[in-house]
């Protein structure tokens, strides 16, 4: 009985705080994506020959983000029957977008306006959550071009 109360409390805390943090994070992501829209991010390996940068440098952004208790519980239920795990999709989406935003922020402080050859690297860093992906790290990196000042 006592165990059930603890479980219910954890689920409740996870549900409300998780929802709150997620909606706050998404708001901040939308705001900053609009702010950094002037920086182009391109996945092509070779830049067009017309590009004449002043300098090119490596920029990167990374974030470690954790899923809440409620969503982890949902995912463990889902793993019984298999199928699409919706509760983890928003976690990965948030982490990727946040990493790209941090990379863009670094590029904009350097005065760059384009980032080429962007790569993502995802790692699950917490093994303590009974084999589940408790928290993930996403790294985004690319080469920023600083335009020639005429």
């Amino acid at each position: 009985m006592f165990d059930l109360v603890i479980l219910a409390t954890l689920l409740g805390l996870g549900y409300f705080f998780g929802r709150y943090y997620e909606s706050r994070h998404y708001k901040s992501i939308f705001r900053r994506e609009a702010e950094y829209r002037n920086i182009l991010v391109v996945a092509s390996r070779i830049p067009p020959v017309t590009e004449k940068p002043n300098a090119s440098l490596l920029v990167m952004g990374s974030v470690v983000i954790s899923v809440d208790y409620f969503k982890r519980f949902l995912a463990s239920l889902r793993s019984l029957i298999g199928g699409r795990v919706i509760s983890y999709e928003s976690l990965l989406d948030r982490a990727r977008r946040e990493a790209v935003l941090r990379m863009k922020k670094q590029a904009s402080t350097m005065g760059a306006d384009k980032i080429f050859n962007i790569k993502y690297e995802t790692a699950s860093i917490s093994k303590n959550a009974r084999g589940g992906i408790g928290s993930i790290e996403v790294l985004a990196y690319g080469t920023a071009f600083i335009p020639v000042k005429s």
């Binding site: 805390l13 997620e22 860093i125």
Partner: peptide, 23 residues
């Protein structure tokens, strides 16, 4: 701290910094 954050969800700032320094 990460264990506590695992209940509420959200960014683990300590880890982010750690991995950035290491990189």
């Amino acid at each position: 701290m990460a264990g506590i954050k695992n209940i509420f969800g959200g960014e683990l700032l300590g880890y982010t910094e750690l991995l950035q320094e290491a990189r």
